[in-house]
Computed example of a mutant assay.
Amino acid sequence: MTETVHRAARAPRPGLDAQGCIEREGSLGRIPHAFRPVVVAARDGLLDLLGDRLHSAYLYGSVPRGTARVGRSDLDLLVALREEPADTDRDAVRALDASLDKRFQQVDGVGTLLYSRARLLSDLETYDLGWFVACLCTPLLGEDLAEYLPRYRPDTLLARETNGDLALLLPRWRERIAEATAPEARRRLVRYTSRHLVRTGFTLVMPRWNGWTSDLHRMAEAFAAYYPERAERLRAAAALGHEPTDDLAVLRSYVDDLGPWLEAEYTRVHGTKAPRTE
C-alpha cells in the first residue's frame, strides 16, 4: 500500500494550473449540441423572471463539462441575486425548473440554486460556495463573481469547508429514506447520496492526492489508493451515481455504515465545517 500511495503522490495531477491551484472546469463551448436549446431557454427564462434583480447566473455539472448524456443528465444552474432571495423567488425558480424539465426531453431534471451575491462572497462561504462558483461553475449571465474570489488549492481547509458536514446530513438522509416509498424517489435518492459520498471520499484524500477531478470513477480510484479496505464500496457508489438502483438496502448501507465511517474519518483528518445558521 505504501508504494501505491507514493506512486500516486508522484504522478502528475489533473485539474491544477502551473501554480498548483485548481483550474476552473467547464465552458460554454463544451456544451453538447443537444443541450444548447435547454441552456438558451433557461437563460432567457431567468432573465424574464428575475430581471434587474439578477446579478449573475452559472451552469455547473456535466452539461458545461461536455459529458452530459441525452435523456440521462440533468441541467444544473446557480443564480446570484443582488439581494437575499425570498420564498417567492425560490417558488418561481422551481416552477421554471419544472417547466424546462417538462419541455425538454433531453434533460432528466433541471435544478437551480439561488443565493445572494453577498452570501456567495462572504468570508464564511469563501471555501465552500465561493470555491464552487470560482472553480466548478461556468458563467452564463452577468458579472463573474470569480473575479472577487481567491485562487484555491486542494488543501485541508478546502476539504473541511466543502464536505466536513456529513454528520449534519446523515440524519436528514435517514428522514428522506423513510419518506422515499416510490421506486423513482429511491433511485433519485440513491443517485444523490452516492455522488455525495464519493465526493466526500475524494475530498478526504484530496490534499494527499494533490489534484482535482469531478469524474466520480476517478474520485473513487483516488480514494482507493489511500483506503484500499473501503475501495470497493466507493467504486460501487460511483457506479450507482451514474446508474442508480431503487434498492432500499443500498440507502440503508449508506446511512448505517459507509456514511458514519466517512464522517468519523473526515473529522479525524480535516475537522468539521464552520457552522451555518441555517
Results as ranks from 00 to 15, higher is better:
T126N: 13
A98W: 07
A180Q: 03
G142D: 03
R176T: 00
P85N: 10
A98R: 15
T126V: 14
R172N: 00
D74E: 04
P171M: 13
L50H: 07
L149R: 09
E232M: 13
L54P: 12
R72H: 14
D108C: 04
P260L: 03
L114H: 09
G29S: 08
V133S: 03
D257P: 03
A80C: 05
M1A: 14
S253C: 09
L46H: 03
E143V: 09
E125S: 10
C135S: 13
D215G: 05
A98Q: 09
A225L: 05
R276V: 11
D17N: 13
T193R: 05
H217R: 15
R160V: 08
S56Q: 00
D48I: 03
G29D: 06
W131Y: 14
L216W: 07
R151I: 04
R233A: 10
R43C: 05
L170S: 01
L49M: 13
A98N: 12
L248Q: 08
E3K: 15
S73L: 07
T200Y: 00
P154W: 02
S214W: 06
L234T: 06
A167L: 08
R172A: 00
E147W: 04
G109P: 11
L114N: 12
L136S: 08
F104H: 12
L121S: 04
W261Y: 05
